[in-house]
Structure formats: structure tokens, C-alpha cells
Computed example of a mutant assay.
Amino acid sequence: MLADRLRLDLSGAETTSGVSAELLDVRASVQALPDGQRELVMLIHWEGFTLPEAARIVGIRESTARGRYQRARITLHAHLRPQGADAQL
């Protein structure tokens, strides 16, 4: 699940040889998002704000934030789902 993978990133999951490949994939995928989407994902998953709080912080309407966040989730899901996994969110 995407939220679990983002939490894994937050927990600083590392292997004995350094940062895990999965963690690197999550970080790279988040960094590849457009600025507005990346900022919302980071505020919600890294900083723990709710979507309405993140919208206020960024200075956009909640409905705009909801749309950006949904697009970010779709993009991240597409990049991070295991090979052969279903396309369902």
C-alpha cells in the first residue's frame, strides 16, 4: 500500500548496506512529482498534517489540494506498484 511505503520512508528504514532500494524508489518518485503535488505529499506524509491543514499552509483551496493530492497518489501508485500488480488504487 502506498501509505505504508511512505511511512517506511519516514521511519528511516535502512539495510546494513545503507538505504534500502525501496526507500530510494519512494524518495525518487516523490521528488519526481510536480512541485505542488510533492509539497502536499510531504506535508501530509512527512509532516503529519491533514489535507485541509496542508491546503491552508500552501495557500490553496481544499478542493484544489484534494485534486492535486489525488493526482499525486495516482502517479506514485503507478511508479511504485510491484510488477504485475493490478492498476486499482
Rank of each mutant, 00 (worst) to 15 (best):
V26D: 09
P82Q: 12
P52N: 07
V30W: 00
I44P: 05
L8M: 14
G36W: 05
P82N: 12
V19M: 08
Q83N: 00
Q31S: 03
L76V: 04
L89N: 11
E22G: 05
P34K: 05
A3Q: 07
Y69C: 08
H45V: 02
I60N: 03
E47T: 06
P34S: 02
F49H: 15
G67M: 03
R61W: 02
A78P: 01
P82A: 15
L8Q: 13
Q70F: 13
R61K: 11
L40D: 08
G48Y: 13
R5E: 10
V41I: 15
S29E: 01
L40S: 11
L51P: 01
R7P: 00
L80T: 05
R71P: 02
A85R: 12
A13H: 15
V30I: 15
T75V: 04
L80G: 00
G67N: 05
L2I: 12
W46K: 07
A72K: 00
V19A: 07
G36N: 08
V58L: 12
D86G: 09
D35A: 14
A3I: 04
E22P: 00
V30R: 01
L10R: 15
M42Y: 03
L24S: 06
L8E: 15
L51W: 13
T75P: 00
I74R: 06
R68T: 01
D86A: 14
L89G: 14
R71C: 03
A72T: 02
S17L: 09
L33A: 09
Q37Y: 01
M1V: 03
G67K: 13
E39T: 14
E39L: 12
Q70D: 11
A21Y: 02
A87K: 13
T16A: 04
L51Q: 08
V58Q: 15
P52A: 08
R5W: 08
I57L: 13
R68F: 02
H79C: 07
L23N: 06
S29Q: 00
P82C: 10
R68D: 06
L40E: 00
A13L: 12
A85H: 14
L6V: 06
D4R: 14
Q31G: 01
P52G: 07
F49D: 11
A13T: 10
R56A: 13
L40Q: 08
D25W: 07
E62H: 12
A55W: 05
R38L: 01
L40N: 12
L43I: 06
S20C: 11
V30C: 01
